[in-house]
Amino acid sequence: MKVITANFVTCAVKECKTSPESYPLHFHDAELEQQEQEFQPEFIRNIVPRIDWDALRTTSNELGFPSLPESKPEGEALDDEQILKDLHRLLLETQVSEGKLVCGNCGHEYMIKEGIANFLLPSHLV
């Protein structure tokens, strides 16, 4: 599961979706791997405005990466190839192959196996 995915998912439990505590989900016991992807600067430039930057900083921090700048790159910073490359590496190439995503509201754990997170709920949570 790519780091970018964590920016666009939250807890599947109905009551959690409106709770600020449930987003972003927290990685636990994450095994990381790098998977090379084609670098498309235009794609990164387009997607950055859509990223929830605070959530990405939290995720990146929890995975043990150096701190991201406090504010999201915009304007001229998005013409800086190195900034785009670094974001490409973090968002698309950094993958969590095994581990868990944990909801900060209800505590439910979603398993990640061979790179795929499973959000199916046990019947008592549906």
Binding site: K2, T5, F8, A12, V13, Q37, L92, I116, A117, F119
Partner: peptide, 22 residues
């Protein structure tokens, strides 16, 4: 999962793991 640069997860249409209005 092979279709880059997208993401794929396992989820149920009745309980999507996504925030509202986003």
């Amino acid at each position: 999962l092979q279709h880059q640069p997208h993401s794929t997860v396992v989820a149920d249409i009745l309980d999507l793991p996504h925030r509202g209005a986003s």
